[in-house]
Write a protein that binds this DNA or RNA. Sequence first.
DNA 1: TTAAACTTTCAGAAATTTCTGAAACATGTA
DNA 2: TACATGTTTCAGAAATTTCTGAAAGTTTAA
Lengths: 188, 188
Amino acid sequence: MEISPRVQSFVFHFGEMGSRWGFNRTVGQMYALLVVTERPLSATELAETLNISRGNVSMGMKELQSWRLVQVSHIPGDRKEYYRVTGSIWDMANTIFEERKKREVDPTLSLLRDNLLEEPKDKEEAFAFEKMQEIHDLLEMLTQWSGELQRLSPEKLSTLMKLGAGVSKMLSMKDQLFTKNSQPTSDS
Amino acid sequence: MEISPRVQSFVFHFGEMGSRWGFNRTVGQMYALLVVTERPLSATELAETLNISRGNVSMGMKELQSWRLVQVSHIPGDRKEYYRVTGSIWDMANTIFEERKKREVDPTLSLLRDNLLEEPKDKEEAFAFEKMQEIHDLLEMLTQWSGELQRLSPEKLSTLMKLGAGVSKMLSMKDQLFTKNSQPTSDS
DNA sequence: TTAAACTTTCAGAAATTTCTGAAACATGTA
DNA sequence: TACATGTTTCAGAAATTTCTGAAAGTTTAA
């Protein structure tokens, strides 16, 4: 399969950047190519288009499937496996966030929780524990919040984003608002 | 300088994780150690405590300074340079977000902008462009939003987070609210 | 100017990650 | 069974990243 220069530049760029987002260059390229191609692609097509080995594609697809970013599909009368991305761009972003959290934040959170169970032994440790507690709280906040955002529909999220600086204004009116309607927030 | 086992486990863990957050293992360790230590540390102390070379510390400090996560400070009558973290844990998270955005999102955004200037040549390219446009819009949204959040004070942000599921409820009342008070949102 | 005390640089060693390609494996068909 | 058409695995090659440590650089003081 040949691809146009501008699409190619995107695919390659995504490869370079992809490594920052948790997968390596070729996996990034494979994913980008699948995103911008309407029809599902076979492993061989991926390998030939990107000039990478067949084996590498196999491993890459396995990884992308483990991230739930790619699905296998079949074409009637064809024994090959064809790959395509799952869901929308929005789903992609959501999934990447979620998976990264699982791999990067959660382990830190549980380590901090464990470490903070006991009491600090001296002044130095007390200071360290304070900082670790702060990081723990921050990460927990982020975790909780990202959960909320993921439950929000894209439309609502878009509204929230467009609101922009208005968020601040809105917050200052929040108490007033919720008191008026006597609707408590659903705190955990 | 010797550090307690639990603090050490945090420092090492942060090293492993740090590589995910944009810096390598030893830089992550150096930063973690500075975070949990109250007094500023010299390069030699860092090197000895972490068992890494003096040269590596020098490079690491340069990098952390370029991230604006670490500052140099001096002790009167001492020619050594001492390092300490800048700002609070909250500032740290903010800075890391901002720097990562600069390095990871912005280049993609400008590549997409450039690529999308011209018209697609055929049906395949049209589909690809559509997807690229969606990614572009998503990234731009994130960019705009993260800007907003950064301008928000930690207290307000905390309120917003605690609000949790309430955000959704609040949004549905937003129009009503702003109409009542005839206060338009400051859209860009 | 020399020396002492410190920092930075960078070539190349070491460690780690990624990728290839051949062999093993799987599955359907004749 | 033998074969055709696929996929997966994995040892080790290749590429990349990180780290060391010795040499060069900087600054202050006498």
